[in-house]
C-alpha cells in the first residue's frame, strides 16, 4: 500500500505548484515541485513512478493550471528519460552531487519549456521569469529532497 507514496507525493507536488499563495508575483515564479518529486523518485525508485503516471500527472497539472495540455507531461517524461539513463551515478552519492544534477536538469527544463512556449507563441518570450523560477526551484529542492527522503525511508526503502 505504501508503494503509492511516489505517485501520491508527485500528485501533491503538482497541485502545490498551482496553489495560490496570495503573495504578489508568486504565481509566475512558483517552484516546479512536480519536477523535484519526479527527479527524486526516478533516482531512488523509478519502478514506483512509471512513465504513465508522469504523463497523467503532467496532463492534470496542465489542464488545471490553464497551460497548454501536454507541456508539463513532456517535460516530466523527458526528465525521467534523462535521469534514468544516468541514475546509477546518483544513487548513494553526496547530496551536493544530487543537488547539482537537479540544478542542471531544472536549467534544461526551464530552457526547454521557454523554447517550446516561444515556438507556440510565434515570437521570443522573455527569459527573466523562467530564470527566476528555475533559481527558486533549485533553491527549494533541498527541503523537498529531505521530506521525500524521510518519507521514503519510513515507508518503502530502496529498490
Amino acid at each position: 500500500m505504501t508503494n503509492v507514496l511516489p505517485i501520491v507525493t508527485t500528485v501533491a507536488a503538482a497541485l502545490l505548484s498551482i496553489e495560490p499563495l496570495y503573495i504578489g508575483g508568486y504565481a509566475a515564479l512558483s517552484p516546479a515541485f512536480a519536477l523535484m518529486a519526479a527527479y527524486h523518485w526516478t533516482i531512488y525508485r523509478p519502478d514506483l513512478l512509471p512513465p504513465l503516471s508522469l504523463f497523467a500527472i503532467g496532463m492534470i497539472q496542465d489542464l488545471l493550471s490553464g497551460a497548454l495540455p501536454g507541456i508539463s507531461a513532456i517535460m516530466l517524461l523527458l526528465a525521467r528519460a534523462i535521469v534514468l539513463a544516468n541514475r546509477h551515478d546518483f544513487v548513494d552519492r553526496r547530496f551536493s552531487f544530487v543537488w547539482a544534477g537537479f540544478a542542471a536538469l531544472t536549467g534544461g527544463a526551464m530552457l526547454f519549456s521557454w523554447a517550446l512556449h516561444s515556438l507556440l507563441a510565434g515570437h521570443v518570450l522573455e527569459l527573466r521569469e523562467p530564470v527566476f523560477r528555475g533559481l527558486l526551484t533549485i533553491s527549494v529542492f533541498p527541503i523537498a529532497s529531505f521530506l521525500l527522503g524521510r518519507g521514503q525511508r519510513a515507508l518503502i526503502g530502496a529498490e
Binding site: S17, I18, E19, P20, Y26, A27, A28, L29, S30, Q61, L64, S65, G66, A67, S113, W114, H117, L125, E129, P130, R133
Partner: peptide, 12 residues
C-alpha cells in the same frame, strides 16, 4: 488555483 508558471496569467 492560479496558473503556476511564467507563460499564462489566469486563475481558477
Amino acid at each position: 488555483a492560479d496558473s503556476g508558471g511564467a507563460y499564462a496569467r489566469s486563475v481558477m
